[in-house]
Amino acid sequence: MIDSLYMPYLMRIEKITCEAPGVKTFMLKFVNEEDQNNFAFKAGQFGEYSVFGEGESTFCIASSPTRKGYIECTFRQSGKVTNALAGCEEGSVIGFRGPYGNIFPLDEWKGKNILFIAGGIALPPMRCVIWNALDTRENFKDITIVYGAKSVNDLVYKNELKEWEIRDDVRLVTTVDPGGETPDWKGEVGFVPSIVEKIAPSAENTVAVVCGPPVMIKFTFPVLAKLGFRDENVFTTLENRMKCGFGKCGHCNVGKVYVCKDGPVFTQAQLKELPDEY
């Protein structure tokens, strides 16, 4: 008999990186090699990560599908499971179910400019697609990343931010909220929507990907509209509470949509069709 849908893969924590206060990245490898060989995912998908005895928690796969042999996840300590995860050590075995959900349509974006806009702890879902795009750089035209956080300390993936800063095939704009800067901060100071407005990227042949806290998204969408972005070219991911991840448990149901099945990636055009319950 085949295993049930609820059986997780066993994953070993290969490496733990502290990104920001309370934010950690795990590099995970399959305990069974066979699982590794059968496993494939695409940018935008998520999984259910579990500490046995504590429960499961939902977050995206933060590494790019172009990087084989492992997956990464980044999470902030905020609940029962993420606290337990934070207590894990390198070498510990945790559970992972997935991949679930839809994907960023990178194939459709070929030949276009991509504008990534992220805030705070929402960079991880985007990191996956950013690296995917950078690893297949020839498929795309200009790539711009706007990333903001409350303070310099709260910026995640600091090493990768440095790398993107140096690369000349990607434009990185980082910003921190007023008051969050340090004396030697060289980036922008201001909220993400106003920085987007300030750098005013062209909407011509460009898709925008926006991930961040609800308030940031709320104020970024009008800015993009003003800049001429059409709703179907603006992408985001929803973060509804989920339990099963495959359209049964009912938690993420919004209108006729199951965020875990039909999302988490949505265009703004799709969101406008949904009831405001996300």
Binding site: Y6, F52, G55, C249, H251
Partner: peptide, 15 residues
């Protein structure tokens, strides 16, 4: 609609 929960008893448990 359902929830997924773990039930721990020290080193062993179930989901």
């Amino acid at each position: 609609c359902f929830d997924i929960q773990d039930d721990a008893h020290g080193k062993i448990g179930s989901r």
